[in-house]
């Protein structure tokens, strides 16, 4: 599970890129989301713990920076879970984040598109703050990256 969004798994987040099993050892390749994300170390230990629970003792976590993580990698199931959690999922952008700057984001509570961006920086590095003009609730969006 993602330490900051405890409803979505690291696989659904697109953070786990590869898993290889060789003899006694399991290697997991992960790609960090944001460079300054404080949850990075926590994610690493969660991965090791999860694999060890399966009875494997030797677990290696490799960090791969290139290709860089993009929010396009969040799976369909992952997006639905983000929305149910109250976080509007990021728009797909195919590598050009600025394209999403013109999109209105759907309110995760009432599905209205009558919303406005309040702050492109939020309570964590990966969130922006929006307000819904229909149900009048503020909500957070997972930032397109």
């Amino acid at each position: 599970m993602d330490p900051e969004i405890p409803v979505i798994s690291l696989i659904e987040m697109g953070i786990i890129r590869d898993v290889t099993v060789a003899a006694e050892q399991v290697s997991v390749t992960m790609t960090p989301t944001f460079s300054g994300c404080p949850a990075l170390l926590e994610m690493e230990s969660l991965i090791i713990e999860a694999v060890q629970t399966l009875g494997v003792e030797q677990v290696v976590v490799n960090k791969q920076l290139n290709p860089p993580w993009t929010s396009d990698w969040i799976t369909e199931t992952g997006r639905a879970k983000l929305k149910a959690f109250g976080l509007a999922p990021p728009g797909m952008h195919g590598g050009n984040v600025t394209m999403t700057f013109f999109d209105l984001v759907e309110c995760p509570r009432c599905d209205s598109k009558n919303t406005k961006l309040q702050n492109s920086f939020g309570t964590t590095l990966c969130r922006a703050i929006w307000v819904c003009n229909d149900c009048l609730e503020p909500f957070e969006q997972f930032k397109p990256l």
Binding site: N119, S120, L125, I129
Partner: peptide, 16 residues
């Protein structure tokens, strides 16, 4: 809002 934004910028830069 800007208090939050500046904290985010600082955190990104520290990450870099």
């Amino acid at each position: 809002e800007e208090d939050i934004a500046l904290a985010n910028l600082a955190q990104d830069e520290l990450g870099h």
